[in-house]
Design a protein around this nucleic acid. Structure first.
Length: 887
RNA sequence: GCCGAAGUGGCGGAAUAGGCAGACGCGCACGACUCAAAAUCGUGUUCCCUCCGGGAAUGAGGGUUCGAUUCCCUCCUUCGGCACCA
């Protein structure tokens, strides 16, 4: 089956965005809360309680139920919200926008508690933002290509597509029970042809701009998954496959790469974005920038040997050179008498994987080539060795070895009896090349270094080190070297020898080589009629009888399609753009949508993607920016990462361990609101914690107590409370509001719930004291439900619309304003310390002067007792907080 | 080895421009209601002592300060990232 031609894409180029950046920034920053017509000012919303029930029945089709029954009212409201398109996010220039993005899941089959943990607290925050007056978009989709689908295909003999879409169907259903404000009309599924058409289109754009290329080189290969991997997908000291944990091997293969290294330097800068420190550090380490110099040595025959060093200040101490076994000059410098040993060593090295070469006991091996090089700084003739501790993949594959000041070189020199010459003399110790026991890698004064003797070398790296700076300037002057920077970062290998991915849209013909599939032939569709997905090390597409046959877009000759598919991280590098207009057949996204919604305001997800998705994603945005497709330097303004929900025994949850907590069961037992609230409450969200199946009972109890307070007949009538009770109630309400607002803003979800619990306890006390029926009570109940609405959208809607008789929907209400005056305390209790120990507490008016507080403190009988008649040496009044008496 | 994050009751966690350590919840104990159980409500719950009252305590040790969970130094432990990267 050849490529199915869908409708011709009419407009496949994306115009440069027109809306100026400045405008957008302004828009986002402008307002916190905008008064809308729908929002009723708090002061006018007061109504006495008994009158409301009748109105409620008229307004609401569903009769109100006195018993707490989330299993009934949750699906009811979910259906109504969906029917009313309550969470539909459409462009509205009259409001500031807020793009809340959360990482889209892989459709593995069932939603587990981790998905809920990742999605529902950010949902609550998105809802809070919406109540603050923002036009919020909170989309959802599926990262649907990937290996597990093929695993299922092999195991159950089902097409990966079928398996995937069944799972998506199921997960969509499960997600609806969350009561989240996902805008399902913006859903994007990366394995839909209407989606991967554009994934392919982006590949072609990158290719056309020289950012995608094909190259043969030794690449990481997972022998279990039978595919190549990107560097980022190989983990840890054991070099294992990120997906399956199998140690990877190296294979020499022709593969497609994205030129991510072009952005190495820019990716190190996080200016203007609010990302967690540890993610920034992790990415910085991953990119691994090293500043130093490249210096040209020469063989005795005059061939240049370029090396990179971070320590040009130790050039005079280079006593030998080491080539990687794959270095192109190895054979040329090897003398006939050493040829056999060298070729044997090379063969040995070639057989070994990187794991064997790099890890293990790290005992140095190597052979002498018989050849010599000339050190350009002092004309010294130094031997050239071959050793596998020098990697062809970093720097130039050749190094100058300075054993006196580099631990690895030192170890090698000692093992093979090579010369050690110190050139950096530390203070107080005289280094001796023959007797020193380890390399001196720190500061000191340059010696044995010709014109630089006496120069001070600090511990600073790069040009910040005066010795390095001086030497580099000198090298440049002499024309033997120059300042240089090296990165650990590698280009992104995106070819995968697998079926269930977006086909790489390239065709090859003998005459014209590789060429992209023309835009009007996109997408290059995956075939349905395939029945063997077993990974063989080559893509199953290769074995399809006709799929790979194509014609050359240049000359029309018979051509062969690329049968590899793309790394799924490619699909997820741009999904936030597809949400903008998921069904647009003319462009990857709609310009007007882009101009309104981008950039993403808050991105949430797991930190395990620090060096993978979160790096690819930034690279991709920058590449698109340079092609004129996107604007701005970063796709995401603020990033926050949730922690992990562990099993009760502190182990990781996994199907194989059988310790997975199923949210469906919890929803059935407690209702979605309770599960949501508990996930916000039971741990610091950004840290995670082990699951506690008892703990959720406390949250369930809170939910029932809320229900009772609002529905219990005792709450519907009251007596007049004292002025103090009413005032205290208002104070507590506004203090809580202040705190909850702050905590939503700052992702401190656990304290939102505890504050609400505290306030509920206070409200119960106020009820006992007769506050029901007062305007203060009416305000308290209204604010309480509004504060709780983002956390527990169903119960609050039920109480708001059905029991309080307020206008549907609570989720369209404005976030209440803090009344600072009401929140303020009249009098405060101040602890009094004597010699650092709290001995008494005094109560003073909040506006008491320092002097009055001091007097009141000293007047205390207890304080006097501890003074034992002595005069205080010092009395410190920390205003409004504490009095400290020192004797 | 390098870089980062974090160590607070039986447990999850509160409290940091330095100022009452342990909010809120779980668990536990006792009590009320009940024939009983569940649910619900109430009370208590860091540890130690001679229990009126006092002492100790935020991984360990030291420092600054009237005062340190918070700031500084040294060390230990746990988790995460990188690692023969020149």
């Amino acid at each position: 089956m050849a490529t199915t031609k869908k409708k011709t894409a009419k407009k496949t180029t994306v115009k440069k965005k027109t809306a100026p950046k400045a405008k957008k920034t302004l828009k986002t920053m402008k307002i916190v809360a905008v008064k809308k017509k729908t929002a009723k000012p708090v002061s006018k919303a007061r109504k006495s309680a008994p009158a409301k029930s009748k109105r409620t029945e008229v307004r609401n089709p569903v009769a109100k139920d006195k018993s707490f029954n989330p299993q009934v009212f949750e699906p009811k409201w979910q259906a109504k919200w969906e029917a009313d398109k309550l969470y539909r996010a459409v462009i509205d220039e009259s409001k500031p926008k807020f793009y809340a993005l959360t990482m889209l899941p892989y459709p593995s089959g069932d939603l587990h508690i981790g998905h809920w943990y990742a999605m529902t607290p950010p949902d609550a925050r998105a809802r809070f933002k919406r109540m603050q007056g923002y036009n919020v978009m909170f989309p959802m989709g599926f990262d649907a290509f990937g290996l597990p689908a093929e695993g299922a295909a092999i195991k159950h003999n089902i097409h990966p597509k079928k398996w995937t879409y069944q799972n998506i169907e199921n997960m969509r259903r499960q997600m609806r029970t969350m009561g989240a404000m996902f805008d399902w009309e913006r859903e994007a599924v990366s394995s839909d042809p209407e989606y991967y058409k554009w994934t392919q289109w982006f590949f072609i754009q990158l290719y056309k701009h020289g950012l995608a290329y094909r190259k043969k080189q030794a690449v990481d290969w997972c022998p279990k998954d039978n595919t190549t991997l990107a560097r980022e997908q190989v983990k840890g000291e054991d070099r294992v496959c990120d997906r399956c944990g199998t140690p990877v091997i190296k294979k020499e293969l022709d593969q497609w790469f994205f030129k991510a290294t072009k952005y190495a330097d820019e990716l190190l800068h996080f200016d203007g974005i609010d990302w967690p420190e540890f993610i920034k550090v992790s990415q910085t380490n991953w990119i691994g920038r090293s500043e130093g110099a490249s210096v040209t040595f020469r063989t005795e025959a005059g061939d240049p040997i370029e090396i990179f060093t971070t320590r040009p200040d130790t050039l005079w101490g280079a006593t030998f050179m080491v080539f990687s076994p794959e270095h192109p000059l190895v054979d040329k410098v090897t003398t006939p008498e050493n040829a056999e040993a060298v070729s044997e060593y090379k063969a040995q090295a070639a057989k070994q994987t990187d794991i064997q070469r790099e890890a293990k006991d790290k005992e140095k091996t190597g052979v002498f080539t018989g050849g010599y090089a000339i050190n350009p700084v002092n004309g010294e003739r130094i031997p050239i060795w071959v050793a596998d501790y020098v990697l062809m993949s970093y720097g130039t594959g050749a190094i100058m070895a300075v054993p006196a000041h580099d631990e690895r070189d030192f170890e090698f020199a000692r093992k093979f009896g090579l010369k050690v010459i110190p050139v950096i003399q530390p203070e107080g110790v005289e280094l001796n090349g023959d007797t020193m026991e380890r390399a001196h890698e720190h500061e000191g004064v340059m010696i044995n270094s010709g014109p630089f003797n006496g120069t001070r070398a600090t511990n600073d790296k790069g040009m910040a080190n005066p010795a390095i700076k001086a030497v580099i300037e000198w090298l440049e002057q002499k024309g033997i070297g120059k300042r240089d920077v090296n990165y650990r970062y590698r280009d992104w290998l995106i070819s995968r020898q697998r079926f269930w991915g977006a086909p790489i849209p390239m065709v090859y013909c003998e005459t014209h080589g590789w060429n992209p599939v023309p835009d009007d032939q996109l997408p290059v569709l995956l075939p349905d009629d395939i029945d063997e997905w077993k990974p063989t090390g080559e893509s199953p597409l290769k074995f399809h009888p006709t799929w790979k046959n194509a014609t050359c877009p240049i000359g029309g000759e018979p051509a062969i399609r690329e049968t590899d598919t793309m790394d799924t991280f490619m699909c997820s590098s741009w999904y936030h753009l597809r949400y903008l207009s998921p069904h647009d057949d003319n462009a990857p996204f709609d310009d007007a949508e882009y101009n309104y919604w981008m950039p993403v305001d808050t991105y949430t997800g797991g930190s395990e993607h620090a060096n993978m998705h979160l790096l690819y994603f930034r690279f991709f945005h920058k590449a698109l920016r340079d092609m004129g497709i996107t604007e701005g330097n970063e796709p995401v303004m603020q990033l926050r990462n949730q922690g992990m929900v562990l099993a009760e025994d502190n182990s990781k949850m996994s199907k194989s361990r059988g310790n997975v907590v199923a949210p469906d069961v919890l929803v059935k037992k407690y209702g979605a609101d309770t599960v949501r609230a508990y996930l916000m409450f039971f741990a610091r969200w950004q840290q995670g914690a082990p699951w506690d199946s008892h703990g959720i009972e406390g949250t369930a109890r809170w939910m029932r107590r809320v229900w009772t307070l609002f529905t219990d007949p005792a709450s519907l009538s009251g007596t007049a409370a004292s002025a103090d009770v009413k005032k205290d109630l208002r104070r507590r309400v506004h203090q809580t509001l202040k705190r909850v607002t702050h905590d939503f803003e700052n992702f401190e979800f656990n304290t939102i719930i505890s504050s609400l619990m505290e306030l509920l306890n206070e409200m119960y006390k106020a009820r006992e004291a007769g506050a029901v029926g007062t305007p203060e009570w009416a305000e308290a109940t209204e604010i309480y439900l509004k504060m709780m609405a983002p956390v527990a959208p169903h119960i609050t809607e039920e109480l708001w619309s059905n029991h309080l008789g307020k206008p549907y929907s609570i989720h369209q209400q404005m976030w209440p304003q803090v009344d600072e005056a009401a929140a303020r305390e009249d009098s405060i209790e101040i602890p009094v310390q004597v010699n650092g120990k709290v001995r008494d507490r005094i109560v003073v008016p909040v506006d008491a002067s320092e002097d009055e507080i001091r007097k009141a403190a000293l007047a205390s009988e207890i304080v006097q007792k501890y003074l034992e008649g002595r005069e205080p040496r010092k009395v410190i009044v920390a205003h409004g907080k504490l009095v400290s008496v020192v004797v």
